[in-house]
Nucleic acid binder design. Structure first.
Lengths: 356, 356
DNA sequence: TCCAAGTGCCCACGAAGAAGA
DNA sequence: CTCTTCTTCGTGGGCACTTGG
């Protein structure tokens, strides 16, 4: 290689404008500069089975370096018929839940030299439908639907697009069950919540208020049902279920409403999400009540913030980043099988337990 | 349109394999199906100034719908010479700081029908260099560097790639100063931290410990310098500066080290980031000390978690999502000027003040 | 190793039809 | 009724790259 040469002594200084304004150098430019054919240049610069003689390879590489050539990914994609991208659909990237998942996906993608594009649904089904449709145009290798869905018919058109998507060779991975989806990542929300419920009942709680999202949303339904099952099987009773969303504010509002109606000391609040639980905690505090001995709170996910609030939040640990990584693997591995995702109940100070 | 028709009675059932396995329908297919030329189909389906007669337009649209056609973005990109993507480079997408920025970027991109691809540097300069280089191949419309950089020479190669990037027509937007960058988003870290320092001194603090990142990292340097300036101008003294990183753990470790050496009651801890501050808080608590009256803590950013920890964290509010949105605008607006980004000190319970 | 035929799409141009004088 | 002048569609070349022969 002759790279340390200053730009003054180029082999063939025909194109003086090379290092000035202008379009990106193309493979064509490299080939001409190296005095080889397009095919040869292509083969040395981009992965190909066929080998090329060392002398040619060197010349091409030198020319590429000298010109500052970078392959045009779009062109490669159209020529190859497939593009090196994984599309990730989340409800809200600022939510730590999705942030952690995204980091896992990104890690995997990165290991495989793929890029990940992120789209945000904002929990709007119509928007989700639009995005999925638009994403089809990208012809990504894989599509990961992390935004939790509903079982409503509103998702029917999305299902169609997803089916179409995988028919075209893309792999669709969704969280939770879903139609038109080949592979799905199952977070065992039900069992996790059940274990939490049981554990809480064992700690002496007998009466609980549940904070969920709208009916029909998988994650919410499963966690709610699981918690109730575990809690009631061990002697507790879920006395009330409030419906809201997945936002912090939603938790605060629901909790405020509950408090307005009166919440006896010793009550346990279960929120479908740590974020919601944290919102509830702030409402409890705002109402002048105490978290813990007075009103206990538990959540789900174990996002980082949960161990930092105080009292620290009892929750169910979900290995979110790992979940994201697995979702990625599901999009690329031919023979993929979901590895078990252990969910552990982690008891912290927000549920000190009640003396019986 | 005759969409409610079941797939049984299609107008021209010539190609039986249409709805089975196979490649995506191309513009060619649509044109043939509609009995028009490629050009006409292209004009109606993809934005073009030129108009086409209503009758033709309808036929093309019907054909497209019937075939389930979606334009191949890669092909469009190579033909047009530009792709509809904005690349976003962050250090860690699971960090709320970047999560919020990303959400702002995504919002903007979405308004303009652009997709955003996210790449993670993990705060590794070499990795950052690799990514920037790889991203060049994507020929994105814009490149947003949110990962905070250093002034070290290690960034030189990145600078070259960035310059090359913008020479090719892409717009590079970076946070903070940077070479090879056309536009930059300036968060006035220095002034914000200075205001915080002043305010803290006014509340009676006289001695502070600062928790920063490695020397040479812009954000860290600016915040540290600003805080010191404000705090000392109003009568305080920064007695020690510990170097770590931007992670929660880093804050915990640095603080633990400080505590091991002894930290007098009434000391204020300033962390360059809320996340770091929260880590410090946990270390303080672990050491059996009290946050607030004993050791006060303040941070920077005002991420959501800061108002949920308790005592709630005093900090400087940075409108992160708005910052992200602006960064996006900077990549697309021809005549862009940074709108002022107000930074406000928000005092909370973690700095109750000391009686003088 | 090179040639040439793709990959799916865009767009400048020329031609044909309709409308107006 | 003929000769412009628009309007609008189709032809062909091109984009940057891949791949079988």
């Amino acid at each position: 290689m002759t790279e340390p040469a200053s730009s003054a002594e180029r082999p063939a200084p025909t194109r003086a404008q090379r290092h000035t304004r202008g379009p990106a150098p193309t493979l064509h430019d490299v080939a001409r500069e190296a005095g080889v054919s397009l095919a040869t240049a292509s083969r040395v610069l981009n992965g190909s089975e066929r080998k090329v003689a060392e002398s040619f390879r060197e010349r091409v590489e030198a020319a590429a370096a000298e010109l500052g050539y970078t392959a045009n990914v779009s062109a490669q994609a159209t020529a190859r018929g497939t593009s090196p991208v994984i599309a990730l659909l989340v409800a809200d990237i600022a939510d730590p839940y999705f942030g952690l998942i995204a980091s896992g996906v990104a890690r995997g993608a990165d290991e495989h030299g793929l890029v990940v594009t992120v789209a945000i649904t904002d929990r709007d089904p119509a928007r989700k439908a639009r995005i999925v449709r638009a994403l089809r145009g990208q012809r990504p290798r894989g599509l990961i639907l992390a935004a939790s869905g509903t079982q409503e018919p509103i998702e029917a058109d999305v299902a169609h697009d997803l089916a179409e998507f995988s028919r075209l060779g893309g792999r669709v991975v969704a969280f939770g069950p879903g139609s038109g989806v080949e592979r799905s990542i199952e977070i065992d929300n039900r069992s996790g919540a059940e274990a939490l419920g049981r554990r809480m009942a064992e700690r002496g709680y007998r009466s609980a208020i549940a904070l969920g999202a709208a009916e029909g949303v998988w994650t919410s339904d499963d966690r709610l049902a699981g918690f109730r099952a575990g809690f009631e099987a061990s002697g507790g009773a879920v006395v009330r279920t409030l419906r809201g969303g997945f936002l912090r504010e939603s938790g605060a509002e629901s909790m405020a409403a509950a408090l307005a109606d009166g919440v006896p000391t010793g009550t346990l609040v279960f929120a479908i999400t740590d974020v919601v639980a944290i919102g509830a905690m702030s409402a409890i505090r705002d109402a002048g009540r105490e978290i813990g001995a007075d009103i206990a709170v538990c959540g789900f996910d174990d996002v980082p913030a949960s161990s930092d609030v105080s009292p620290a939040l009892t929750t169910v640990r979900v290995p979110l980043s790992e979940v994201g990584y697995q979702a990625f693997r599901a999009t690329v591995d031919a023979d993929w099988e979901q590895a078990p995702l252990p969910l552990d109940v982690v008891v912290r100070a927000s549920t000190p337990g009640v003396p019986r």
